[in-house]
Design a protein around this nucleic acid. Sequence first.
DNA 1: AAGACGAAAGTGGTTGA
DNA 2: TCAACAACTTTCGTCTT
Length: 307
Amino acid sequence: MSGEFVKKCPECGGINLFYNKEKGEVICKDCGLVVEEKMVDFDQEWREFDGDEAESRRRTGAPMTYTQYDQGLGTEVGQKADLYRLDGKDKNKFFRLRKWQYRISTAIERNLKLALAELKRVSSYLKLPKSVEEEAARIYTLAVQRGLVRGRSMESVVAGSLYAACRRHDVPRTLDELSEASGIEKKEVGRTYRFVTRELGITILPSNPADYIARFASSLKLSAETQSRAIEILEKAQRSELTSGRGPTGIAAAALYVSALIHGEKRTQREVADVAGVTEVTIRNRYKELLDRLKLEKEIKKTKKKE
DNA sequence: AAGACGAAAGTGGTTGA
DNA sequence: TCAACAACTTTCGTCTT
């Protein structure tokens, strides 16, 4: 596909590399390091949100990127030729408009320039693929144009945009991770995320617990078998309607916890809870539900006897 | 002593009147 | 706009390994 892949993980030397096409990243299954993330972007989608402004800001032609603060385009009110067609009164109006336009656009550009720098910082901290970064930049740009940043800190809107972009691309990061990377309070990230997506009419499907498994498993250093077993458990749980309405991270964590028990790779509830960003109590609740419905007790006992 | 378990009270968000 | 509600968290005491 795109050039040669790295064969060994530079971090731990493991050869257990996993290429995830949709997410555009290569992950080391042993240590969880994202080895390669600058891959070709697949299925990038371009939706039009700004129906009102579609005329004035038609964006066709050369490829554009939203990670550059003015997208290489500027807006100016009028041109010199227009001036001569106006009488005195209209001329004043014209100058006022132009002055405003100038102020507004430079303000927006200044803001964008700063914000996108911040966005890149957070994004690289979280090792997010380029496609997500682009998406986040696009969302942020729209948010600024709609004046959604007013009354909110720039950083929190950046974090919210990034979170939304992650969700849309099924490359989930928890609110906690976003919070840690951006230095914004978790609540605030969630709030602006909801606000921005609502105002921009972006719909986001509830995230799938299975998307979290790989990342959680690798930071817990669990084997591939445990991982795939966890996913099996998840599927069963979904069929028995244990998943709806519950937080996906809690479910993923519990599935992983059970799976680790079955495979004799026991982790404490606290360890699992920490990487999943939920509490032990939540794990316990999910865990109990899983046991009740999915008759897994005997499998756990089986591995216990072996020891 | 550490981990697992569960009860009780608190938090922030959603829903429906 | 407000109250009821569900999911999740915090805290804490007890039991198990």
